[in-house]
Measured scan of single mutants.
Amino acid sequence: KITVTFNGEEKARRYYKKMQKHNLKVEIRVENNQWVVHVE
């Protein structure tokens, strides 16, 4: 499981979509004013 933190929504969403293309289970959320993407 990987957790990647971004300081911008745009970058986070781009990464999220990229990971989805690989058929990975991805989850995006905001934690402590940071955009966090969890990849299983």
Rank of each mutant, 00 (worst) to 15 (best):
Y15P: 01
H22T: 08
V36Q: 05
N33M: 07
N7T: 13
V36F: 07
V30E: 12
K11L: 14
T3R: 08
V39H: 04
K18D: 09
Q34E: 07
I28Y: 01
K1D: 08
V30K: 14
K25C: 06
K21C: 07
F6V: 01
R14T: 10
M19E: 01
N7R: 10
W35G: 00
N23M: 07
V39S: 03
E10W: 12
V4T: 04
K25D: 05
K21E: 13
E9G: 04
F6L: 02
R13Y: 13
K17G: 05
Y16I: 06
Y15L: 03
Y15C: 05
R14H: 10
G8R: 14
Q20K: 13
T5C: 12
V39F: 07
K18W: 15
K18T: 09
H22K: 13
H22E: 10
E27G: 03
N23A: 10
G8N: 15
E9N: 03
L24W: 10
L24F: 14
I2N: 06
K18R: 11
V37F: 02
N7C: 10
A12V: 02
W35K: 00
N33D: 11
Q34Y: 11
A12Q: 02
I28R: 00
H22I: 10
Q34D: 03
K1E: 07
R13D: 04
K17N: 13
G8Q: 15
I28G: 00
V37N: 00
V26H: 00
V37T: 00
H38I: 15
V36A: 03
N33W: 05
A12D: 02
I28A: 01
N33K: 06
R29L: 12
N23T: 04
K21L: 13
E31P: 01
L24D: 03
E10T: 08
V37R: 00
R14V: 09
K1Q: 09
Y16C: 12
L24R: 07
R29I: 11
V4G: 02
R13S: 04
H38R: 09
E10Y: 09
V26N: 00
K11A: 15
A12R: 03
M19D: 02
K1T: 14
L24G: 04
N23P: 03
K17E: 15
L24H: 08
H22S: 09
T5Q: 07
K17P: 01
R13W: 14
Y15N: 01
V37Q: 00
E10G: 08
F6I: 02
R29W: 12
K11D: 15
N32M: 06
N23D: 07
I2W: 15
H38N: 09
W35L: 02
K25E: 05
N32L: 06
V30W: 13
V30N: 11
G8Y: 12
I28N: 00
K21G: 11
R13A: 05
T3I: 12
V37S: 00
T3N: 04
R13N: 07
Y15F: 15
R14F: 06
Q34T: 10
Q20P: 02
Y15S: 01
Q20R: 10
E40G: 11
E10P: 04
I28V: 04
N23W: 09
N33F: 07
K21F: 09
V36G: 01
R13F: 10
L24K: 08
T5E: 05
I28D: 00
R29F: 13
A12M: 02
I2Q: 07
V4Y: 10
E10D: 12
V39M: 06
E9T: 02
Q34V: 13
E31F: 07
E40R: 06
Q34N: 08
V39Y: 05
E10A: 13
G8S: 15
R13M: 14
V36P: 00
L24T: 05
K1S: 13
W35F: 04
Q20G: 04
N23R: 05
R14S: 10
V36N: 02
A12G: 02
K21D: 12
Y16N: 01
V26K: 00
E27T: 13
M19Y: 03
V30G: 05
K18M: 14
N23I: 05
I28K: 00
V39L: 07
K1A: 11
M19G: 02
K18Q: 13
N23Q: 08
Y15E: 02
N7A: 11
W35S: 00
